[in-house]
Design a protein around this nucleic acid. Sequence first.
DNA 1: TGCCGTGATCTGTGATCACAGTTAGGGTGG
DNA 2: CCACCCTAACTGTGATCACAGATCACGGCA
Lengths: 232, 232
Amino acid sequence: MNLPAALNLVEPLDRQTLGERAYAKLADLLISGRLAPGEKLSLRAAADVLGVSIMPVREAVSRLVADKALEVTPNRAVRVPLMSAAQFRDLTKVRIAIEGHAAAQAALHRSNSDLVSIASAEEAMKAESLLPAPDLPRAVELNKTFHFAVYEAAHSPILVEIIRALWLKAGPVINLDLRANPERLAKGDAIRFHADVRQAIAAGNSGAALDGIAADISGAADFILSRGGLAG
Amino acid sequence: MNLPAALNLVEPLDRQTLGERAYAKLADLLISGRLAPGEKLSLRAAADVLGVSIMPVREAVSRLVADKALEVTPNRAVRVPLMSAAQFRDLTKVRIAIEGHAAAQAALHRSNSDLVSIASAEEAMKAESLLPAPDLPRAVELNKTFHFAVYEAAHSPILVEIIRALWLKAGPVINLDLRANPERLAKGDAIRFHADVRQAIAAGNSGAALDGIAADISGAADFILSRGGLAG
DNA sequence: TGCCGTGATCTGTGATCACAGTTAGGGTGG
DNA sequence: CCACCCTAACTGTGATCACAGATCACGGCA
């Protein structure tokens, strides 16, 4: 191992496969709600758009189907699953239990750098939502950043992975709705809950952190359920 | 809709794809611990065994990789992930939180038929483990049946799906160990905890149900950790 | 005018081929 | 006798082809 010192600086250059990149692309579309529930997705069409053959798309889609973020109907069509109100309530209950647990763990195990990233994520979203004309896609992205900054602070990779899968399912419903209804953002509930969560985690108050996340999640869910746009 | 009456009897005949069957087969191998951590898996070899081309195997493997039940190394080899003691502790904590929550929900929402299937699953496993020479693979299967009978009683499909993914990760470690150490089964801890859980759920005591599942999971985990066979 | 058969065109699924990269093993040079 | 190299046999990834089944629109029959 007699290498030039300069070589120590090179990073292993991530050899991402096309399948992974296709997965990341599709997952982002789902989480940010740009793919609506019920919308169909053709493998060949997606492959055309991504500029690859259908093979990488097939791998990405089969992963998302395994996560139930997509489904293939008995008639051989891939689409974003339609969610009934009952399913959405179930999903919301599970999210409250698991994301609340993660927030509680974060309050107990957060490091100082966790607090910094949580605070800056909160600040960024607050700033965006207080603008006269907030950029909704950006607000959605910042909301995600804040939540995952919290969950990362629990220092449990497995928990974070589970929550990511939950967001894959919830994204199409929640964020599609948020795009259509900017007034919920303007109302400022989320901003308030986020502040509560940040303070609770900083104070090491796990119960309050759990309550804050639960309020944030159920607030958004109640709003969507009250509009009654979900499938029967 | 003027159909011959006889047609009302036909069932939609499950059109399972080869990929799904391959997935089910591999998932079963993992959950029951017949694939050991670190063991390599060749797509072509697996395809040969299953009597299909590598395509269905590819789909199955890519799903399992997405669930982190398998991993593909930077050197392009598919294998069962090696788990460090720290990762195993994290997994165990998450399992206690989530499976405990599911058991608590089961205590609150179980129907009478849930109680029946839980009781019969408990009885079956108890009978097997009290035999002079228990059939270990069968005991592993019965243990799984009991746990999922409990989780199904929570009536939350999403929760059950998450737990299934957790078992996919834990299976290779836990059940491989159980095969190698039948004495843990003979000791009868699991049997006792299962009885506690069943009674708690029947009584609607969610706290006790949670404690029972937690004791069952951490009992097995402590045993494995104490043997120190995990990767650094 | 309303309905049903029919064919072109789309769907996902599976098999096969091509390729770059890795690994293991046998042989050769020191 | 040990170390090295080189080749042959693998690895997963990606593209392409083949196929059964589903969809949809058009045209003919009632």
